[in-house]
Design a protein around this nucleic acid. Sequence first.
DNA 1: CGTTGAACCTGTTTGC
DNA 2: TGCAAACAGGTTCAAC
Length: 274
Amino acid sequence: MPELPEVETVARGLRTFLPGRRILGVRLGKSDFIDDPAALERDLPGRRIAGVERRAKFIAIRLEKDGAAQAPVAVVVHLGMTGQLTAHRPEQPAEKHTHVFFTLDDGRELRYTDPRRFGRMLVADERQLEAVLGRLGADPLEISLREFRRLAGRRMMVKALLLDQSALGGVGNIYADESLWRARVHPRRRASALKEAEVRRLYRGLRRVLTAAIRLGGSTISNYRDAEGRPGEFQLRHRVYDREGEHCFRCGARIRRCVVAGRSSFFCPRCQKK
DNA sequence: CGTTGAACCTGTTTGC
DNA sequence: TGCAAACAGGTTCAAC
């Protein structure tokens, strides 16, 4: 579910109430998506939260320094397909599939809910943090056109390139399709075969889609919610994603679906020629 | 190196 | 209506 705009929205929401809070306790339900569940329960209580960062689709909840030499410096969360990080009052009954409860010193509770458990969570020291985040490619909102052009020299299908987290960090299936539609580029084209004008359109399309989506709080397809439990609105602006058989907003042709890089891919057969 | 398919897990939708 | 198959925003790994 959550791609860069959704994760960014969650991170911004968390940033409004988490910094400065102390974690009083941690309770776990199912924990098979946590790298070291015991460390989570053992090392977090008593620690104060310094800030919240997003890298690609990861959220890093930074902890204030603690005397211990190799104390954890962050709680790292990836929401997978169905993960949610939301604040609740402790008396609110937990939603089904809520697997982690962080008790905070302001009387609230930060909860992690994830039906499919494709998400991931770990408490990381500096080295582990680097191991996880260091493999990620450039942020699509920060990369230069020059650098993007270099990535586009690869011979793989352009959609696979957009989805490759070690090339670009944060793009997922929805925003890959939406940016390709804006750029009028077929998802199966080889990146290295794109003309300069196409590379430029893709670069701009990607930035525009992502910033517009962040402005609307992301896309809610089924269960995405922000840190306060609210859905996003960008799904109302999707031009191709999940619109098979409907009319292209630009030319009126019927949107088609095919599989690229193992993922459903929606495109306009008239605007996006192979 | 690039591509495909399977695996991880649960819920919902689709098709017979 | 019932049941099985297909599919879902993500990542990783093995095999070709």
